[in-house]
């Protein structure tokens, strides 16, 4: 299965919130939708789910117009919500039946997911009687109860403690392994980094970076090295590089006591390493390829703006 979002635009009144969003997602791979608050992630997802329509653009599934109510989708909206005064099993079965499952299949699936998320003992309880974390797990179970081909999770980890986060991580990995399309929106970069092969970073309604996460990291870290010396603080290293290596590298950042540098055109790693080896009193501790974290990339791309 392949989902393609092509050039979606959306305005609310005079405010243009999406300015041509395009990306694609494939089964068996998770796509991380990243961006600051108000960047347009949730709007993109809501247009995808036909909560409201985009002003222009199209969405295709396997090359055909995408109709979200005709495909089994597990949707966990940012605004969580179920019926607080109804029994958990009852409302999960209802949601599954709305998605076209038979009553018996809906009950079977509901029990499976309640068991998987360790809230099976509460199936006859009213939702409002559960703790916030368990309510969140019930919401996740409700998202998956229709046995979806595509899963869209908007901030799925918010409100979960580390133990429950671990359970959810395992579930998401299973979904990916089962070949489902997983769309993932989150501010928690570590989770995105763990699951997502593909990322899309949205800023002010525009895509500022997208592609395979490893490739993005590679490209972002290209020609950059982490350099550090024994007994040298970060400031010492920065001063040294500015004074003695200005014609070979430029400083791009700091990583604790190490300095991140980019090789200037025509300079090789070997040349730099030899020069460092000749510096009196410097014993090289770190000299390695810089591998940026997703957090670094995110901050570099959208963090400078106020």
């Amino acid at each position: 299965m392949k989902l393609e979002v092509k050039n979606i635009t959306k305005s609310f009144g005079d405010k243009e919130v999406l300015k041509g969003i395009s990306f694609s997602a494939e089964g068996g791979k998770a796509l991380g939708l990243l961006g600051r608050n108000g960047a347009g992630k949730t709007t993109t997802i809501r247009i995808l789910m036909d909560v409201f329509h985009g002003d222009s653009g199209e969405i295709l599934l396997d090359g055909k117009p995408f109709e979200p109510r005709k495909v089994q989708i597990g949707y966990l909206p940012e605004e969580r919500g179920l019926y607080p005064k109804r029994e958990i099993l009852e409302q999960m079965v209802y949601l599954a039946r709305l998605r076209g499952l038979s009553k018996s299949q809906a009950e079977k699936n509901a029990r499976k997911w309640l068991d998987r998320l360790q809230v099976d003992a509460d199936e006859k309880k009213l939702l409002e009687t559960l703790s916030k974390g368990n309510q969140q797990k019930v919401q996740l179970a409700s998202t998956l109860v229709c046995d979806p081909d595509m899963v869209i999770l908007d901030e799925p980890f918010s409100g979960l403690d580390p133990v429950n986060s671990q359970i959810l991580q395992e579930v998401v990995k299973e979904l990916i392994a089962e070949g489902k399309i997983v769309l993932f929106s989150s501010h928690q970069m570590s989770y995105v980094e763990e699951f997502c092969q593909e990322i899309v970073i949205i800023n002010h309604g525009e895509i500022v970076l997208q592609g395979n996460l490893e490739a993005v990291k590679r490209e972002f870290g290209e020609n950059q090295l982490v350099v550090g010396g024994v007994g040298f603080s970060g400031e010492d290293m920065e001063r040294l590089i500015k004074e003695q290596f200005a014609e070979m590298v430029e400083i791009t950042g700091r990583d604790k006591e190490d300095v991140i540098v980019r090789l200037l055109p025509g300079i090789t790693r070997t040349e730099l390493f030899r020069r460092l080896g000749n510096v009196q009193g410097l014993e090289v501790e770190h000299f390695e390829t810089y591998k940026p974290s997703l957090n670094d990339i995110f901050v570099a791309k959208v963090g400078e703006e106020r």
């Binding site: 789910m49 036909d50 909560v51 109510r69 909206p77 605004e79 969580r80 919500g81 709305l98 998605r99």
Partner: peptide, 12 residues
């Protein structure tokens, strides 16, 4: 109670 969004994405 915010259940509306889940409902309208499941059924017309």
């Amino acid at each position: 109670n915010r259940s509306m969004e889940v409902l309208i994405t499941s059924i017309d």
